[in-house]
């Protein structure tokens, strides 16, 4: 089994397959249109359980998160999102607090880091 390589970029940890060209290891610039659509959470550490299994970013700045089974609490259930800059996204959360997260985008993977340092990623659903 090929080993996973963890590389660190400011605020973000990304796992990449060995042999990946260096240019592909760098996060791409995140723009709002990249976010639009449905995303599914990738295998994640326990600290990321409170984030939804699927996430849908809509064009008018709204998002909906869903967790399984239905009725499971998720910190990102519904609300607004705003890309503060290419590395930071602000979402309204389950108790209506606006929270800013580190975010990066590489290929079809969107990686978040929360204030506790929990790193988790979503993959664009086709």
């Amino acid at each position: 089994m090929a080993a996973t390589v963890w590389m660190c970029v400011p605020g973000v940890a990304l796992s990449v397959a060995p042999g990946t060209p260096m240019e592909d290891r760098m996060p791409q610039s995140l723009a709002p249109h990249v976010l639009f659509g449905r995303w599914e959470k990738l295998p994640h550490p326990p600290c990321a359980h409170r984030y939804p299994n699927t996430l849908e970013f809509q064009e008018r700045g709204l998002y909906v998160g869903r967790s399984d089974p239905p009725g499971t609490f998720t910190l990102w259930d519904a609300g607004t999102f705003e890309l503060v800059d290419p590395r930071h996204i602000r979402l309204s959360t389950a108790n209506d607090a606006l929270v800013t997260y580190d975010v990066s985008w590489q290929h079809d993977r969107l990686t978040f880091v929360d204030a506790d340092g929990c790193v988790f990623a979503y993959r664009k659903m086709t």
């Binding site: 709204l62 909906v64 259930d77 609300g79 389950a94 108790n95 209506d96």
Partner: peptide, 21 residues
């Protein structure tokens, strides 16, 4: 409603939907 334990609910325009939605 949150203080009563409810989360957001976007299924209609009721109290637990968000104002933006």
């Amino acid at each position: 409603g949150h203080a009563m334990g409810l989360y957001h609910n976007t299924a209609d325009n009721g109290f637990m939907n968000t104002t933006n939605v």
